[in-house]
Amino acid sequence: MTPALRVLNPGPHSSLQDLGRPGYQRMGVARGGALDGLGARAANALVGNRAGTGVVECILAGFAFALEAEGARVAFFGGRAPVRVRSSTRRDIGPAEVGRTMKLSRGDVVEVGTISSSSTLYMAVEGGFRVAPRLGSVSTDLRGGFGGFEGRLIKAGDLLPLALDDVPDAETMVLQGVDLAVPGKLRVVEGPQAGHFSIVERDRFFSSTYALASSSNRMAAKLVGPVLAHAGGFNIVSDGMVPGSIQVPGDGSPIVLRSESQTTGGYPKIGVVISADLPALGRAPVGAALSFERVSMAQAEAAAREFAALARSLPDRVVPARERDVAALLSTANLISGVVDASA
């Protein structure tokens, strides 16, 4: 039998994602990939996968599955969420929580509840999922209806095929020094159409606080707050867009494109969120208060190098859980947010 995860409850918005498919924008194909690329990389690092391995991205709440394989090592990373494991073998698999590897056995059921402190949660499984890449990626392109698992959100009853049927036992690992908080400020480089707004309107944008609208999704974060007036018209000849582009349509409410951005658009773009802050933009939950800080191109490029260094360092930040648990006991912090129920 093909090793797989059987989806029991898909959660509100779960899909397979990786770090996206660059190289096809000329064909109208979005780069796509994980909303929070840092969360996806961190989950993969925990189970020893390379950074671009496919993971399950959950938005708003987690999902529930049963393991239909001999054994699997999984890890969640992202926002806080209750993790509950019902062990089929009544084994003690240790505390179940986000940020900590778990070795599962056939029949084990994992349930992840509502995500708080962030909108996204990633689950990596050692070896990854066995799905055919489309255009070099296993990311699900929801607008295009392709990639990932059948080009759609996962649903109850799906069997997500795994690359490995079993993995050897190994120490439980945790990730140190990676903070997936949602910063209130995102850094922005002005342009390409900042000139379509007066200096006063640009200053208004950079001095205002916006709330993330509930209509936001993987394609775009819609902002509620002060509207911006265009200096001229609000239609431009459609041009290319990248994730992070902040377009201002006719109603003056800014829209920040996310990883599954449309590839072209005809509204003026006042600025673009820098690449180092795209993971934070991706994990910002509905209602989050966001403001935008103007930075120079040199600052943006320095931040990109810092982010690349952080991403490269992730495998080195994975350490045995017992080391951190001892430290935690000493500081009396309660790190156990999940429950293991071996009575199932």
Binding site: V189, E190, G191, P192, Q193, D239, G240, M241, V242, G244, S245, K269, G271, V272, V273, I274, S275, M297, A300, E301, A303, A304
Partner: peptide, 12 residues
């Protein structure tokens, strides 16, 4: 040549 964040430029 217009800046499009730190990941792209637009040649218009």
């Amino acid at each position: 040549i217009l800046p499009v964040g730190d990941t792209a430029i637009s040649v218009e």
